[in-house]
Design a binder for these strands. Structure first.
Length: 918
RNA sequence: GGGCGAAUAGCUCAGUUGGUUAGAGCACCUGCCUUACACGCAGGGGGUCGGGGGUUCGAGUCCCUCUUCGCUCACCA
């Protein structure tokens, strides 16, 4: 009986479920992810700060694959920079999500048969607060399951007292600078949420609708009339004019006259305005100032009234200036029912000339999908043009870059045409607008709440509106670091931040506005890099969503495959700016590759621990390079290559001189390339070749075994380092078990590998050995040689390999399952030949192994294929244009290749003859 | 309607300033339980680079055009 396994051995299978949560706890307990402001170079510390702020998920949110992707990307970058020696800070937090959260609580109330108006504002806000306190932030716990290395001691919330102070400071400062104003105009209104929306929150949807052509008779003329076209006939009740283009000859004689508004039966003027497009429809346009933003502008220009006929809930009810415009049987009707009714009335009266189906665009509420209604109201607006200027200049000059590159154009395009931002919302959940109206009509905009005494003395009433939730999100990089207290240690140590990672959907909602506020309040860009990743979609390329039921729950994936597998899949599959396609119906297909890779790492670890045990091998630095076997030199040089590739793929972490130089601007952040380079090293080089090469040496006592152990430990350790940012759990867990780890050391804080160099000469020998093995395997595969049949291969004309073969014979024969001999010339009889790239030939006699006729056919085929290619190559070389114009190095390479192919042709021809061919 | 992007193996994607016989992962086929790993090992098949035209000694790569998708902005009622 052998002794029981020692403590250094690993279980047969890695169990992520049993490992991940405990490991995360250990990280958190040790403060591995905590940033220390005093260590920042900006406040005299030793380390360069590297900071990211999380796109705050809605406080009511639960983790979905979109977060899985977004937060995995951020964590990869954070862990990389932390290992690379930066003082790394990742600020987590949540967004109070005004309308979204209010809608959730309203639904809860609805289940009790109540509306928010039944409970009243204060009680409703109280209830929402309580709801958030009880259920909010679940997603923050879920981020831990993903492995996110956030600094939880700095968790922020957009509606916390601290951040609310920032919101108020921001608004008042903008007000003082004249950048915020109260405007009376037509805005987007959601009749279900009962609030205004910004332009961005009212999303376009292509839909089909009816275009109604309605005749408006000219007053005082028996036969003349103007026909207008509208998709929204219900709004005609609020028409105040018909507009035509001033140079439209069809109508010039009617300008100044009056037409009769059907149904309402009042007279309205015909006016001329260049806004009207002569080419569209009949060239005449009805003007409804209260229910169309453009008509409102026209009305303003012409001094027209703005009667209101649709109320806040989208019903036909008279508002200001409406008088008796709404027929009695229409009053109180929903706007869409009214549309049908009015269409019928127009048809009955003969005023309806025509109606046609038409594709048009309808704006819907981004929160509840209700068709928004243009509505005349008083709102707070932020003047965007002056704020946008520095944000535009920043991207143009390269002090801020947007990846992928094409989004920069989109960003610039939007900022150039930017319009003022409606920031007030008529909901209850959010930061109350800090404006008080006094009895005497004065307006008080203030940072602090008025005292009770002031309220009574001045008769103050606070504005009932709250801010757009994006107004507070726009302050996120500032407010989470302590602004408006610019002397706050975090603010001085960590602002501006570095990289902002998010989805393109919120480029305008959020990213651009953070830029505006960064410059407006801190005179500095909030980050130097905006990385926009793709969207998680299903195999039909539909966005994953709850309503479509095509989602994947990341927690299910974590439970079944582990967080590392999930992270691996999204990172390895994430090309720059491309979408991540996952199959909700087949988790195995999507996540098995990640799990398999994790298992591979685990098994290399098992092998290593079984062979090294708990005796710490000598440090690599203590070993003279002359003692390294060729396999050692090779794997060490491959490690250097892998490090260089990973670094190149990850790219520059920051611009070194304020702005991105042209050559670096769009470099880096190729996370998929980084993942692939690290995977290839660990799997295809370390596991497939080095581990095999090192096996016999580990068993043999003496110095060489120790060298092998030292190298194996070194390269495995560094493979784990390279992979840690992507698969943090498995790598940390294995790294902890390696011999020689000081107590309390964490891979999460270990140094990122650097290229060391100096191994190459010896490494070449091992590459030749690999060629040899591959050659024999290929032949055995080609001829389907059974494992039990030996194939004694002969090496011809490769003197340099003779020595290498002697040094690695056991390895070569085990890997290729074939004895190998060195001979000065090829043996007689039928044989398979493999030309070695590094020179020489591998010859494998086939007598008794394979059908000679078959081999003859194979050689014949290879010969003709080679001749075809050679002919094309020789044609090119005979082309005077090519020889004269192509770069000499390329011509020379082609000539050498042609020589090689001719030699190969001779070999093949000789072989063909030897096999009895003609 | 304006702007931008994409179309390469069955799928998801690479392919650097034009230059070897266009690559990878997954899937597929064949053979292997080789003492870390069958969640594995070895080998293999598969692409007229969306269609057409042009520039060039040479085009997946540059230009024009068509088709099909996607993103984004927009005040044609």
């Amino acid at each position: 009986m052998t002794a029981p396994k020692d403590t250094t051995s690993l279980a047969e299978r890695y169990d992520p479920g049993a490992t991940e949560a405990a490991l995360y706890e250990a990280w958190e307990k040790a403060g591995v992810h905590r940033a220390d402001a005093t260590r920042s170079l900006r406040v005299g510390g030793p380390k360069r700060p590297f900071v990211m702020v999380i796109p705050p998920p809605n406080v009511t949110a639960v983790l979905h694959m979109g977060h899985g992707l977004n937060d995995s990307v951020q964590d990869v970058i954070m862990r990389w920079r932390r290992m690379a020696g930066d003082e790394a800070l990742w600020v987590p937090g949540t967004d109070h999500a005004g309308i979204a959260t209010q809608n959730v609580v309203e639904k809860l109330l609805a289940a009790e048969g109540k509306t928010r108006f039944d409970v009243g504002r204060d009680a409703f806000v109280e209830r929402t607060k309580q709801f958030v306190a009880e259920t909010g932030g679940a997603i923050l716990r879920q981020l831990r399951a993903l492995g996110c290395s956030c600094d939880w001691t700095r968790t922020a919330y957009t509606f916390s007292p601290e951040l609310s102070r920032a919101v108020r400071e921001a608004f008042v400062t903008l007000y003082e600078k004249g950048l915020v104003y109260r405007g009376h105009r037509v805005i987007h209104w959601c009749p279900r949420c009962l609030t205004s929306l910004s332009d961005e929150e009212a999303e376009f949807h292509d839909e089909s609708g009816m275009l109604y052509h309605v005749r408006y008779p000219v007053v005082g003329s028996a036969d003349e009339s103007i026909v207008i076209a509208t998709t929204r006939p219900e709004t005609m009740l609020a028409d105040v004019a018909v507009a035509v283009h001033p140079e439209d000859e069809r109508y010039t004689h009617l300008v100044g006259k009056r037409v009769m508004l059907p149904i309402v039966n009042i007279e309205i003027p015909v006016i001329a305005d260049t806004y009207v497009d002569r080419e569209f429809g009949t060239g005449a346009l009805k003007i409804t100032p209260a229910h169309d933003a453009n008509d409102f502008d026209v009305g303003q220009r012409h001094g027209l009234a703005s009667p209101v006929v649709i109320d806040a809930e989208g019903r036909m009810n008279p508002g200001p200036e409406a008088g008796t415009r709404i027929p009695a049987d229409i009053v109180g009707l929903d706007r869409f029912d009214a549309r049908k009714r009015i269409a019928k009335m127009l048809a009955d009266s003969g005023a309806l000339v025509d109606k046609e189906s038409r594709a048009h665009r309808v704006r819907r509420c981004y929160r509840c999908n209700t068709i928004v209604e243009p509505r005349l109201s008083d709102q707070w607006f932020v003047k965007m043009k002056p704020l946008a200027e520095p944000a535009l200049a920043a991207v143009r000059s390269g002090s801020v870059r947007v990846l992928p590159e094409r989004w920069e154009a989109v960003y610039i395009n939007w900022l150039e045409g930017i319009r003022d931002w409606n920031i007030s919302r008529q909901i209850w959940w959010g930061h109350r607008v800090p404006v008080w109206y006094a009895a005497d009509g004065t307006v008080h905009v203030r940072r602090d709440d008025p005292t009770l005494e002031e309220v009574q003395r001045l008769g103050l009433r606070q504005d009932t509106d709250v801010f757009d939730t994006w107004f507070s999100s726009a302050l996120w990089p500032l407010s989470t670091l302590g602004w408006p207290d610019t002397s706050a240690q975090d603010f001085r140590a960590f602002y501006p931040t570095d990289v902002l990672v998010t989805a393109p959907e919120i480029l305008f909602f959020w990213v651009a506005r953070m830029m505006f506020f960064g410059y407006a309040f801190a005179e500095q860009e909030p980050f130097h890099t905006v990385y926009l990743h793709g969207t998680v979609r299903d195999t039909q390329h539909r966005k994953m969503s709850k309503s479509l039921g095509n989602g994947i729950d990341p927690l299910d994936v974590i439970k079944l495959y582990g967080a590392d597998a999930l992270r691996w899949t999204v990172i390895a599959g994430l090309g720059m700016g491309t979408d991540v396609i996952l199959d909700p119906a087949d988790l195995e297909k999507s996540f098995a590759p990640g799990r398999n890779f994790v298992t591979k790492l685990w098994n290399i670890g098992r092998f290593l621990l079984q062979n090294i045990g708990d005796t710490t091998p000598p440090a690599l630095s203590s070993i003279d390079t002359s003692q390294l076997a060729s396999a050692d030199a090779w794997i060490l040089s491959r490690l250097d290559a892998a490090i260089a590739e990973c670094d190149a793929a990850l790219g520059p972490s920051r611009p070194e001189s304020g702005a991105w130089p042209a050559g670096e601007r769009f470099r880096g952040m190729r996370l998929d390339e980084y993942a692939e380079a690290a995977r290839r090293f660990a799997w295809n080089e370390l596991a497939d070749w080095y581990v095999e090469a090192v096996k016999p040496r580990l068993l043999s006592p003496g110095n060489d075994g120790n060298v092998a152990r030292a190298v194996l430990l070194h390269v495995y350790d560094h493979a784990l380092r390279l992979l840690h940012p992507i698969v943090p759990f498995i790598t940390e867990s294995l790294w902890q078990k390696l011999p020689g780890r000081p107590a309390g050391a964490f891979l999460a804080r270990a140094a990122w590998p650097t290229v060391r160099g100096g191994w190459s000469t010896n490494a070449r020998e091992f590459e030749r050995v690999q060629e040899l093995v591959a050659g024999i395997r290929q032949i055995r595969g080609d001829y389907n040689v059974a494992p039990s049949v030996p194939t004694p291969a002969v090496l011809v004309g490769a003197d340099d390999l003779a020595g290498a073969l002697e040094a690695n014979r056991a390895f070569v024969e085990r890997m290729s399952r074939s004895p190998v001999a060195v001979a000065p010339s090829a043996p007689a009889g039928p044989a398979a030949h493999v030309v070695l790239r590094g020179g020489g030939e591998l010859v494998l006699p086939l007598a008794g192994i394979v059908d000679v006729a078959k081999e003859q056919a194979r050689v014949s085929e290879e010969l003709s294929s080679l001749e075809k290619q050679l002919k094309s190559l020789e044609g090119r070389l005979a082309n005077t244009g090519f020889v004269a114009k192509a770069p000499p190095a390329i011509v020379e390479a082609e000539r050498r290749k042609a020589d090689e192919w001719r030699a190969r042709r001779e070999q093949l021809a000789a072989k063909h003859r030897a096999l009895g061919g003609t």
